[in-house]
Structures are given as C-alpha cells and as structure tokens.
Design a binder for these strands. Structure first.
Lengths: 334, 334
DNA sequence: CTGTTAGCGCTTTCAA
DNA sequence: TTGAAAGCGCTAACAG
C-alpha cells in the first residue's frame, strides 16, 4: 500500500492539514516547515492519492476520448492518430488525463455514454469519427457534459467543435488544378454521412463555378473514404467521363486508390490524370507518385480541441466552433 | 451535481447501506425492498460515484495504456490499432477502463511512469511500442505494478508479455518461398532495437539453414520497419545480391516499400521478385500486387493481454509469456 | 433482512 | 503559521 498523507505528517511531526498545504503550494506555511515536509515526502516517496483528492475537490481532471465504431475495421485511424497525440500532449500540460470511452459498451449491464462519464466523473469529452447518422452524435451534442467534437460542425450549449476549413481546402485543390491548366476536373467525395463531405463538395463546386463551369454538370461521384472505394470510384467516374484530366479526391486514401487504378490500367499520374487528395496522411508522401494533397493540421486540431475543452471546463468559456486553415501540398501526382 | 446514494436512500425510505447492498446485488436484501430501491434509483437516474467507491474499495478498475514515443511521427500505429481495440473490448467486458499514460510527461512537474500510476491508482499497465533501448522498458518490467508488454519477451515478477511467435512466422514465410522454388531468398529486417527483429531473423536463418544454406552467407539487410526504409533496403540488397529471386521483409510497410522500388524500376512482383511481408496490416490487402504476408492476430493479442493482466490483478495469477501463432497469407506478390 | 458506525485519504473551513 | 474537525460518497464490519 502506498504512503498516505498521514504517514508523512507523522514523520514530519505536523498535522495532515499542514502537509496538504505545504505540498499544494499554499503560502501560509513557514519556509522551514515546508522544506521539512517536502524532504520527508520525498524520502517516503509519497504520492498523493488522486482518488481521495477527487472525492473532496469534486474534480477528477479526467477527459473522455470517444472514437465511434472505429473498431469495426474502419480505416479512419490513419487519420486520427496525430489528433490524439495533439490532444494528449496539450492535456498533459494542462494537468488532464485521457480515458477511453468504449463505444462497444459490452459491460455487464448496458451503459450509455453519459452514464459512463457520470460514474467516472469525467469532466469533459472529445469525440471523433462521428457520422451524422451516428446514434452517439446527438447524445454527445445535447449532453450537459462539456464536449468538443472533431469534424462535425454542430454547436450547442455545452458542445463545441474543431475542424479544418474544408470548403477552403477543396477550393485550394481545385484552384491548383485549374492553375495547372486543367478544365475537366472530377470529384470523388466521401460518404454522405460525414459532415466534411458536404463542405468539400461545396468547396469543389464553388471553385468550379467561379471558374465558369455549371454546377449541375460537374462530374462528381460519391464513395466512402477508403482506398478500395477510391479505386472503384475512379473506374466508374472515368468511364462516364473519359474527358477528365484531373480528379480531386476527398481523402488521401481514396486518391491513393485512384493512383492504383491508373497504374493497373497502365496509366500514370500526373501524365494521364492529375490527382489530388485530402488530409495529408503519412502514406501520401511515400506513395509513387507522391500525392499532392490538402494538408490538415491534425496535431493542431488535437491541441485546439484540448484547449477549447479545458477553457469550457475551467474558465466557464462557452462552446465555440473553430476552423483551422488547411494547406496545399504539391507533390508529384499533379 | 449528480444524485447520491443518500438521496436514493431517503426516497426509498431505507438506509444507504441497504441501497448499496441492493444495487450491488447482494443477496441479503428482500426482493420487495430491492425492487423498490431499483425503481427509485432508476427514477432519480442515480449513478454510483466510482471515485467514492474506489476510495473505499481501494480498486479503481483502471488500466494504464502506454505507447512509447509514438507521437514522434512513427509509423507504428498502422500496426497497433487492432491491438488496442482487442484490449479495450475485452477490458470493457471485464469491467475495466483504459487511461492513456503519457510518455511525453510535460506536466508542471516531471512525473515518472510509476508516479503517474500511483497517483491515479492505476491497477495495471499494458505497454507497447517499446524498443529494447527504451528507458521506459526497464522501469515497466521492474515495477511492482502488474503489467503486460506487447512484443518484448521479458518476464519478471510482475510483468508478463504477449507476442506473436515470430520465429515460427518467419519460418512460415521462408518455407512458403522455398516451396515456390526460390533458392536465393533475401531478408530485410527491422531495426535491431526491436525484440521482434531478433526472432524474425532467427526464424529466417533457421529455415534457410534447414534448407541447406550456410548461415553466414545469407543476404540480410537491417532496415527500420518503415516504407521508405524498405525501399532503400531493397535497392541496396538487390544491388549487392542481384541473384535474389525473393525477399522476405520483417514488416508489411517495408515490403510495400519493396514493391514500390520494383515498380519504379519497371519490375514487378512476383515475376521479377517474390515479396513477402510481416504483420498483415490493412494496407497489405489493397496494394498492387496484393501482399503475401504473415498475419499477426492483432486483435487477439490485445484480448490476450487484457485477460492476462486481469488475471494477474484479480486472481493473483503470476506473469506469463504468451506466444500467438501467426498465419501465412498468400496473395499476389509471391 | 436492515440499520448503525466507522472509515477510505484527502481538502477545507474555522479557531487558536 | 498551525491544528482540530467535518465531510466528500461510498462500502463493510458488526449488531440487532
């Protein structure tokens, strides 16, 4: 059993109250006593029991991290890791820890998201990977628990969001292709239940319309964000629109699927088709040809989510929606 | 503020003890009382405070999850996600939750792994991504806290491990290639500070020696597990040993790098070079040509780690080393 | 079968 | 500048 505050007090010959004050940096302790207590605590290797402290302060400094249904073989984790790291790093600095909120709550009794957080006295939640038709989405957004969702622009009383400015990102991609002289630019979108899909489509359409194309005649195909999906989408889209000289994909994985499709047909990017993706996952830099893409600042998204949440919790800040600027990365594929 | 047990007791007109007993499923409560209490608890939407419970039971049902230095742009997360899911799923069933143990402990004051776990009263730890020269490794293995490490065969008083039988896996790969008629089989290994590298090399060597080759003349090159590393390794190894007709890579990512190298040179697997990887990450199925590989049962590794740890914690089981059998997956690249 | 009592380890009034 | 005492919400003897 670990050392308790009582043992430290006894060894330092003071009351536990004084130990508590000394160790928590209160000013009303004489320097001499403080030093003695610190020394004793050190010698005994004392570690305050966070559980006991939480019970009295009513603060657990615990943040829930929820990734929806990711266990089901989704490929989304190629995208989310840097976000997680950004969150974790910043939260550690701010003195918070992350606990994973299981979505496959197969515990003895079924337990909801909010029940879990209530029992554990989780102070706030960051959620990602949520589809618009995800049953959790509503629960999280409407819950009184402070929360931040990634990539879903829903604001409520206690829920903010962080995401990339996808409309702008898509425009960057299209303008880049237009600038390269392309006129026939297709778009392979992600599934319709992702909020980002709508924005990326809008960005694509607006940029194309600005360039003089008719919105209702744009070559668009809806896929599912995966590599395989991107491959199939490319085939279908190019069959229907053989005149295309460029395709913008709403994810790197789909774009890589496109590259693969081309390769299988003995064709190549950027010669036969210019290819631009979205996300800038690690893979994009190393595929052949290296993939041009719209970089999302994923680590920063994580950091921002962390700070926003803590501000809601600690400083009574109200929920905000924050858009981070993406960045065009030109590589070999376009 | 959430509802407390006291309020439930008052509303149900019993003592808090009885409420506790009823809700925790003790038998010494009359059916009628129990039902009444359950109903009241339900109505009030009562959720027991896990913090308070932990303080008295001295159990937090919290497991630490440590991934070493993964934030530093490592590509290891392609591998580890399914392990995490396996753990999380099984631990949820067993009534435990995962808390992330930050390795970049930039908190106000520096705090070690063990300090963190002590303060949070973490009951056990699963660690992965540990290099043999990782400073955490020693600390974890020697710590009195029950722990399980993934992919490092170090056993101690309180630390067990789970990993794939890498020697066997490598042998499967080599035998497969031998069976296809290959005689000149090279090996691209991961970095030397990974325990799995040693085993995979041993498996390769033993299989080759069994087939009549001399151990000291085998074409081996040490790389770093990454795609880019695998690409470079392929170039170097093939330059030095142009006679090779097959290469076995110690990771899928490196093998994919190999495929890419071939492609850039206008050559192809399996015609010009048979390629086999290790891990069976999601990507391997969708690259072209689809990658033959040694499948690690990653979800099962996670499940096993969870069960082993819980057995150490709950049932006073002693630490074990567990090897899971890998599986040869033959696809197009060989 | 139920209630009383005594803590778990800590923080926080309130007095001294 | 220090200590005594109360109590956070719960479980667990021990009586009755």
């Amino acid at each position: 059993m670990p050392v308790t505050i009582r043992e430290v007090a006894k060894a330092a010959d003071v009351s536990i109250t004084t130990v508590s004050r000394a160790l928590n940096g209160y000013s009303d302790v004489s320097e001499e006593t403080r030093r003695r207590i610190m020394r004793v605590a050190e010698e005994l290797n004392y570690r305050p029991n966070a559980v006991a402290r939480s019970l009295v302060t009513n603060r657990t400094r615990t943040i829930g991290f929820l990734v929806s249904e990711l266990s089901k073989g989704r490929t989304g984790h190629y995208y989310l890791f840097p976000i997680l790291y950004g969150m974790q790093d910043r939260l550690a600095e701010l003195g918070y820890d992350l606990i994973l909120v299981s979505t496959t709550t197969t515990r003895q009794r079924e337990i909801t998201y909010l029940d879990f957080c209530t029992e554990r006295r989780v102070e706030g939640v960051v959620a990602m990977g949520l589809r618009l038709d995800d049953p959790y989405l509503h629960e999280i957004v409407e819950s009184p628990l402070p929360s931040v969702v990634i990539d879903v622009p829903l604001l409520s009383d206690r829920c903010g969001y962080v995401m990339t400015d996808n409309v702008y990102g898509a425009k960057l991609a299209v303008r880049h292709l237009l600038g390269r002289g392309h006129k026939k630019i297709g778009f392979v979108n992600g599934h319709s239940q992702a909020a980002v899909s709508m924005d990326r489509r809008r960005g694509y359409e607006e940029a194309m319309v600005s360039a003089g194309f008719r919105a209702d005649q744009l070559p668009v195909f809806e896929s599912d964000f995966t590599l395989e999906g991107g491959k199939q989408a490319s085939e279908i889209l190019l069959e229907k629109h053989p005149e295309l000289t460029a395709i913008f994909y709403a994810s790197d994985l789909m774009a890589i699927g496109g590259l693969r499709f081309l390769h299988e047909r003995g064709r190549n990017a950027p010669k036969d088709l210019a290819v631009v993706g979205f996300d800038d996952v690690e893979l994009s830099e190393v595929v052949t040809p290296a993939l041009s893409t719209i970089r999302q600042k994923r680590y920063e998204i994580g950091v921002t989510a962390a700070e926003m949440l803590v501000e809601m919790m600690d400083a009574d800040g109200f929920p905000q929606g924050r858009m981070l600027a993406p960045e065009l990365i030109v590589r070999a594929s376009s």
